[in-house]
Design a protein around this nucleic acid. Structure first.
Length: 592
RNA sequence: GGGGCUGUAGCUCAGUUGGUUAGAGUGCCGGUCUGUCACACCGGAGGUCGCGGGUUCGAGUCCCGUCAGCCCCGCCA
């Protein structure tokens, strides 16, 4: 309201409410910047147009007090206009002033000067009501709202139905740790908060809701990161009688729509790449294609180099891959070693590197390179080669980190600011310590071309699965699902489950599949990440009204917290205190 | 679970090699001021140096532990 006043309102009388953002008291004359969700406007108080009583009150206003003023909008004197303010051509000359509520001095300032740093994150979270008053956060929340609204409208137009699914659900054994909710009525039994509505939406498919969507809250009890919160919001989508292309096209349309709302570029169709290609060319299943830089396979060229490291890696079935950086020889030894550190942090034992210089080469790798090698590697004077040798499992993450670090070190130019990508055909399973895990979840449809290898070589089987990647950030993940109960049972068996376990954990799903389940598939998109990435925000905390800390605490309201002994007893719970810590608070006392 | 960074006035920060009474800006309180927009000027109040222990004649500063926030690995799509 106040932020929308413009010169065409001059001459009108306005009644305005809002917060005292800032005050400039010149003695006889005083100015108040009045703020509400829409922005700022300058209100002027002076003896010639303000009631005496109102003027007196205005001199004593404090920051963040809530006021109502009424007065005339005037065009400011030419020399007193403020071009930095949207409402800077005008001001409101207050006739009357009513103080609607006082305000204690804010614990953290809402006003922020041009060179003021933000208060500590801890304080911003503890005093969230004040932090949220700031215009940037108001705008972030507003964009979030518009994106959710646009999502609902988009799917509504396509005939999708939003169906709510339970928040009190059944614990699932796979995937992340569940948040558990004890049952009062059933001693020793627990609900789980959903990690996603995955199984419910598949049951909705078998129930004949052939186009489903939901803005769904999901919960995962895992350690957090800047892009991970314990509770988060998904755009959950599922449809029956569809192929992967249908889902991809719907989502491309959605992203085009949402991007337009946010002022971001998204032009379908998005580039598509198999998981295998992504790993081969970029070492990552979510490559950031804002930069063109790729990995090269130099196994054939370098297997002849007289290096034990290289020969050994190849002899053990590994590959020699690397990155050639145009002009990379300009990096100092220290800078190259910093890149190597990144590769090591990503799990590589080390990085071999060589600079092509006027008098040959330098760097650990160069002593093994002969003239023919340089040529075959297309290395010209001034180039830098960064090489990793070994199994892809090790070198891919290392080279992905190398690529990121090199891009940063050389400040390579972007080829686009908005890189959209579909990564397709993820492997169905991965193996860790001889145990098979589902790469995504156990309901992904095996690729029809690979399905006959399920029994003898399951690790080579791809799933009909797809990830949406934007600027190197995974925005969503989905797949076609298994609708044949026998195939589903077989996959669960491959994961090491016996018949009883399968029936106990997934019996209700198998029963539904057996009742005439249509072929179906879908996707889930991370709403919070979409807002964050569209805004270019540094943290998910800036797009969630009440986020948790990295230790999963809510600082504003103080959750989690101990509960009364009686409440525990009602839930048939007993808390075992960690030993070895003195002076621990009792878990809770009976109310007196 | 592990690694790193940070913690000094309401807020943002400085604080030397361990040394006297811990500073600045801003905010707050009081005053002057009719065109400011980071208003200006004068004056003032404001400190559990996160917490606990240790070393030392002496600790904001060094050591150990601990708590909190942030970033990362593990974990997690």
């Amino acid at each position: 309201m106040v932020g929308g006043l413009r010169r065409e309102h001059a001459g009108s009388t306005q009644a305005l409410t809002g917060w005292v953002h800032r005050r400039r008291d010149l003695g006889g004359l005083l100015f108040v910047d009045l703020r509400d969700g829409s922005g700022l406007v300058q209100v002027s108080f002076g003896p010639d147009w303000t009631d005496a009583e109102a003027l007196e009150t205005a001199h004593r206003l404090g920051a963040e007090e809530v006021i109502r003023i009424s007065g005339e909008v005037i065009l400011r004197p030419e020399e007193a206009r403020n071009p930095d303010l949207a409402t800077g051509d005008i001001e409101v000359q207050a006739r009357s002033l009513e103080r609607l509520n006082r305000a204690t001095t804010p614990a953290i300032p809402v006003y922020r000067g041009p060179e003021d740093e933000l208060p500590a994150e801890e304080l911003r979270l503890r005093h969230r009501h004040l932090d949220l008053r700031r215009t940037p956060l108001q705008e972030n929340m507003a964009l979030r709202h518009r994106l959710i609204l646009a999502t609902r409208n988009y799917f509504d137009d396509l005939g999708f139905l939003e169906v709510e699914t339970p928040v009190l659900t059944k614990p699932t054994p796979e995937g992340a740790r569940d948040y558990l909710v004890p049952s009062r009525v059933h001693p020793g039994e627990f609900y789980a908060l959903p990690q996603s509505p995955q199984i419910y939406k598949q049951i909705l498919m078998t129930a004949g809701f052939d186009r489903y969507m939901q803005i769904a809250r999901c919960f995962r009890d895992e350690d957090l990161r800047a892009d991970r919160q314990p509770e988060f919001t998904q755009i959950d989508v599922e449809a029956a009688f569809v192929g992967a292309d249908d889902v991809l096209e719907w989502i491309e349309g959605l992203m085009e729509t949402l991007a337009r709302v946010a002022g971001v570029e998204a032009e379908p169709p998005f580039q598509r790449m198999s998981w295998a290609q992504a790993m081969d060319r970029y070492g990552s299943d979510r490559p950031d294609l804002r930069w063109a830089l790729k990995l090269d396979d130099w196994t054939e060229v370098l297997r002849t180099a007289d290096s034990n490291i290289l020969r050994g890696a190849v002899a053990e079935g590994g590959r020699i891959r690397g990155i050639r950086l145009d002009g990379g020889a300009s990096l100092s030894r220290r800078q190259v070693e910093a890149i190597e550190e990144e590769a090591k942090a990503a799990g590589a034992p080390g990085l071999l590197w060589a600079k092509r210089t006027a008098d040959g080469g330098s760097g650990p790798l160069s002593r093994w390179l002969e003239e023919g090698h340089w040529g075959a590697l297309e290395a010209r004077e001034g180039d830098l080669l960064l090489v990793a040798a070994g199994p892809d499992r090790v070198t891919s993450p290392a080279l992905a980190a190398t690529r990121r670090a090199a891009i940063q070190a050389l400040e390579l130019p972007r080829v686009t600011d908005h890189a959209w990508l579909w990564v397709l055909d993820f492997p169905l399973f991965e193996e860790e310590d001889g145990v098979m895990f589902p790469n995504h979840h156990p309901f992904v449809l095996p690729h029809p071309d690979d399905a006959d290898r399920l029994a003898e070589d399951p690790l080579s089987v791809r799933g009909v699965a797809y990830d949406l990647v934007y600027n190197g950030s995974e925005l969503g993940s989905g797949s076609l699902r298994i609708h044949d109960p026998e195939l589903q049972r077989g996959v669960l068996e491959l994961l090491g489950m016996g018949p009883d376990e399968i029936d106990g954990k997934f019996g209700f799903l198998l029963e539904a599949l057996a009742s005439g389940a249509p072929p179906h598939g879908g996707i889930a998109l991370g709403m919070d990440r979409i807002v964050k990435d569209f805004l270019g925000a540094a943290s998910l905390r800036d797009v969630i009204a009440f986020p948790k800390t990295t230790a999963a605490r809510a600082l504003f309201e103080g959750a989690p917290s101990p509960v009364l002994q009686k409440e525990l007893a009602d839930l048939h719970l007993e808390v075992r205190r960690r030993s070895g810590r003195g002076a621990e608070e009792p878990q809770g006392n009976e109310p007196t």
